[in-house]
Amino acid sequence: MKVKLFLTEAGELSRFTGRFFKQWFRPRYEIAELMRQCYVIGYNSLPLVGLTAFIMGLVLTMQLRPSMVDYGVESQLPAIVGIAIIREIGPVITALIFAGKIGSSIGAELGSMKVTEQIDAMEVSGTNPFKYLVVTRVLAATLMLPVLVLLGDAISLYGSWLGVNIRSTTSFSLFWTQVIDNLSFSDVLPAFIKSYFFGFAVGIIGCYKGYTSSKGTEGVGRSANSAVVVSSVVIFVIDLLAVQVADALGFKLKT
C-alpha cells in the first residue's frame, strides 16, 4: 500500500514538473513577480545561510584540528577544510537550510492560498496561477540557491580562518592562498552546478506540496512539513547522483 502511495506521489510530482517545463518559457512572463520572489527567496535567506555557514566553518575547523595535529599535518588544515566546504558541506548544508526555510514557506503559503480559494480567485482574475505562483517560485529558488551557496562558502571559509586562529596564528592571505592552491576547477564546478538542482528540487517540491494541498488548515501544515522532509531527502539523492555523474565526467579530486 505504501509502495503504491509512493509511486502515485512520484507520478504526480513528475506530472507537475512536466507542467512546469511546458509553461515556464511561454508568455505571459511574470518578470516582476520573479524579481520579487528572487528578493524574498534569495536576499531574505542570506542572514540565516550566512550565520549557519559561519558556524559550520568554525566548528568544522575546530573539530578537525586535533586529528590533523595527531597526524602532524596541521598546516594542511585550510586545504582540507576548503575542499570539504566547497565540494560537499557548503552546497548540502546550505540546501538543507534553504529547504527548511524556503520549502516550508512555499508549501505553507501556496497551501493556504489553495484552501482559502486565493488560487481560484487568481484564475478568475485573468491570471494563470501556475505561472504566477509556481513558475516564478521554482525559477527564483533555482537561480538563488547557487548564489547563496557561493556566499555561504565564502562566509564559511572566513569562519574557518577564525577557527584556525583560535589555537595558532595564520594570516588571512596565507589561509586563503592555501585554500585556493588546493582547489581546482573540478572541485568548484560540479558543486556549483549541483546547487542549481538542489534549488530546483526545493522549489518544485514546495510548490507541488502547497499547490496540491487539501483538507483545510491541517492539510496546509502537512504540506509545509512534507515539503521540507521530501526536499531534504531529494537533496541527498541528487547529491549521490551528482557525485557519480561528476566522477563519470572526470571531475575527480586532485591526487
Binding site: 503559503e109 493556504s112 482559502t116 480559494e117 486565493q118 480567485a121 487568481m122 478568475v124
Partner: peptide, 11 residues
C-alpha cells in the same frame, strides 16, 4: 465572482 471565503490575497 464573490468567493465564499472571500479569497483576498493575504500578502
Amino acid at each position: 465572482f464573490l468567493f465564499q471565503s472571500n479569497a483576498l490575497y493575504d500578502s
